[in-house]
Structure formats: structure tokens, C-alpha cells
């Protein structure tokens, strides 16, 4: 396995994809713990579909994809959070409506621009070839920002996730926290979309947190475990995809995550009975 990894690292494009992927995996796992516990998992899913719509529209209009995707996704992130909180609209219905509409817009734009070409395909399912130097820099900046936020804000994030009413009464106001989370999630999805694909990126947010919750009972334990599992699953998925060329990178990573989840469930169950 290590020989394979060394061989992979000799390709510059794979090195870039691995670097971006490892950093995005870490970010999404950290954000995922809070998103899953607050029952916001579907927001990641909704946002990735919005990302697909925005990217294909940008492709059709021949503008740089990020210039369209970033503002559209930030607006959608706030919108999704707002809909989630309002009682007038059922949250998961709102996510489904936004997801389906975004894909419809994206497919229409792609078909107007000459059908589902390889670019569109790579947005959907990810491509390790598409990762540029700028993506690596972007991922690094994002990762640094999220790590700083989590280390310095750890106790506030715990209180905000565990009991927002109490956190609010203790002077940690929930509204700005919600916004920061929406913003960071949107950014993580934009950066991770290239490697993982819009259809699979939300798995990176949900899987590690759910797996870690099978193994640990404390918030600190779950946060750390989720980060470690996420990075490990990404590296294993990439190696598998390199070794068996029929496994696409994004799919390999999600399957590795699924394997970890099944193993963790087994361990959790054995521990309970044993």
C-alpha cells in the first residue's frame, strides 16, 4: 500500500488531489459533527446540488465556475438555514425543492451548451485531473480558517451544538454561529466538489460524524475521531481508486467511508453486548 502511495505521489496532479482531499476531508468532518447533531445533514446535500447547478451554468456561459458557484452557494446556504428555522416551511421539503430545481437548471444549461460533456460529468462525479494549484491554495486557506475556528471556538461550538438556548443565555449568540457554519460549509463544498464531485461530496460531511458517534460518547472524542476517520477514508479511497482503475476517486472515498461506518457499527454493537 505504501509503495502504491509513493508511486501516486510522484504524479503532480495526484499529489494536488490528495492534498486538497485530505484538507477538505478534515474540514468536512469537523463541520459534519455539528451539522449532523443539529440535524442539518441535508443542507450539505442541498448545497452540493446547488453547486452543480451553478457550475454548469458557469460552464454554459463560459465564465470561471468559482465566480458563479461561490456567491450562489453562500446565498443558498443562508436561505436553507432560514427555511430550516421557519415553521411555515418544512425544512427537508425545502432542501428537496432546492436540490431538484438546481439540478434541473444545471442539466438544462448543460444541454443548451451542447450536451453532457466530460466537464459536466467531472463536476458530477469528481475528477482528480481537474485540481489546480489555486485549488490547493484555496483548500489550505479554508483548512487553516476552519481549524482555527474549531480550536479557538471549541467550547462555544460544543455549547451551541448541545443546547443553543443555554449557549444564548451564556452570551454565545446562536445567529452568528449559524451563519459562520453555513458559510464554512458552502466554502468546503465548493473546494471539495472538484475532487469528490457534487453528487458525492455530502457523504464527506455526514459519514465521519455518524461513524465517530458509534465509537465515542464524548463530544471531544467524536470530533477527533471524525477528523481521523475522514482523512484515513479519503487516503484509502484514493489508493483504491488508483489501484483499481474502474473505481472513480469520489466513489472510492465514499465506499471507504461506508466500510468504516459498517465496521464501527459492528464494534459499537459488540461493545454494547460484551
Amino acid at each position: 500500500m505504501f509503495d502504491l502511495l509513493r508511486e501516486m505521489l510522484s504524479y503532480a496532479f495526484l499529489l494536488r488531489a490528495l492534498a486538497v482531499g485530505v484538507m477538505v476531508s478534515l474540514c468536512s468532518a469537523l463541520l459534519g459533527v455539528t451539522l449532523v447533531l443539529k440535524k442539518y445533514s441535508m443542507i450539505g446535500d442541498g448545497l452540493s446540488h446547488v453547486g452543480f447547478g451553478a457550475m454548469t451554468v458557469a460552464l454554459a456561459l463560459n465564465v470561471a465556475p468559482l465566480y458563479v458557484a461561490v456567491p450562489v452557494m453562500i446565498v443558498s446556504a443562508f436561505l436553507l438555514l432560514r427555511l430550516r428555522q421557519s415553521s411555515r416551511f418544512s425544512g427537508d421539503a425545502a432542501v428537496a425543492i432546492i436540490s431538484a430545481s438546481s439540478i434541473a437548471v444545471g442539466i438544462t444549461a448543460a444541454s443548451l451548451a451542447g450536451g453532457l460533456n466530460t466537464d459536466v460529468y467531472s463536476y458530477m462525479f469528481g475528477s482528480v485531473l481537474a485540481v489546480t494549484r489555486e485549488d490547493v491554495i484555496l483548500a489550505f486557506v479554508l483548512c487553516a480558517a476552519i481549524l482555527t475556528f474549531f480550536v479557538l471556538g471549541y467550547h462555544r461550538i460544543f455549547a451551541f451544538t448541545f443546547d443553543p438556548d443555554f449557549a444564548d443565555a451564556s452570551g454565545t449568540h446562536t445567529r452568528p454561529f449559524n451563519m459562520v457554519f453555513a458559510l464554512l460549509t458552502a466554502a468546503t463544498i465548493v473546494v471539495g466538489m472538484r475532487v469528490m464531485g457534487t453528487m458525492l461530496i455530502s457523504g464527506l460531511i455526514v459519514f465521519p460524524a455518524v461513524t465517530a458517534m458509534r465509537l465515542s460518547r464524548s463530544f471531544r472524542g467524536v470530533t477527533v475521531t471524525a477528523g481521523v476517520i475522514s482523512v484515513a477514508a479519503f487516503v484509502i479511497g484514493m489508493i483504491a481508486s488508483y489501484a483499481f482503475s474502474y473505481i472513480p476517486a469520489g466513489a472510492g472515498v465514499v465506499l471507504a467511508n461506508l466500510l468504516f461506518l459498517l465496521l464501527a457499527s459492528l464494534v459499537g454493537r459488540l461493545r454494547k453486548t460484551g
Partner: peptide, 25 residues
Amino acid sequence: YLPQQSTAGADFPASVKETVLSGCL
């Protein structure tokens, strides 16, 4: 403050120590 009910779900991973310490927030 002791709120009416905790909104945390049934499988929320938080130790007793983490919960009490969060009072010092």
C-alpha cells in the same frame, strides 16, 4: 439558567463532565 428541556437528541455525544463544564461558558 436551567431550560425547560434540553434540545439535544437521544444519541448526542456529550459526557457529563463536558456538559457541566459548558456551564462556565
